[in-house]
Write a protein that binds this DNA or RNA. Structure first.
Lengths: 69, 69
DNA sequence: AATATATGTAAAATATATTTGACACAATAT
DNA sequence: ATATTGTGTCAAATATATTTTACATATATT
């Protein structure tokens, strides 16, 4: 899978580090790093928690269609 | 967690059984059943596969906001 | 030069998603 | 009556997400 640049951008927009996100949603820094780098396949609940923290929706960050791919 | 009635409805709209969905996305019937009944926390890739199969987006089926909750 | 923060990565352990096999029940068809 | 399809559920096994610990590099700071 490719990198999740939309996540990286949304995080940058909030000026939060990977560790900030991790602490806020209750996972480790490595998990957030792996998601951003597209290394794996997180659970939907984790995705939802990240989206809510960043003020985005699932489609904003994790859905790929014509507009963002 | 509560039941995922939006998934159940989208499936009904396509006249597909739980097993039909399961076979099409490559998981077992029990997994689809558990997701519909809100028993657990599927991976985002599985959610995406289900959405694409049903012609819906992540927000349609798995995102909870003011409109659908 | 030394310290701190942010990121990338890896191996082993643990938690949990998912499978497999099974049984039950209701509705429908033969 | 019995066979079939769709659903709900459960226990044990397997696959994989996530944690823990650790090391490396780059950048900024004192």
């Amino acid at each position: 899978m490719g990198k999740n640049l939309r996540l990286k951008a949304a995080r940058a927009a909030k000026d939060m580090s990977q560790k900030d996100i991790a602490d806020a949603v209750g996972v480790t820094r490595q998990t957030i790093n792996a998601i951003e780098n597209g290394d794996y396949n997180p659970s939907i609940n984790l995705c939802i928690a990240i989206c809510k923290l960043l003020g985005k929706t699932l489609n904003d960050i994790f859905w790929e269609d014509e507009e963002n791919e």
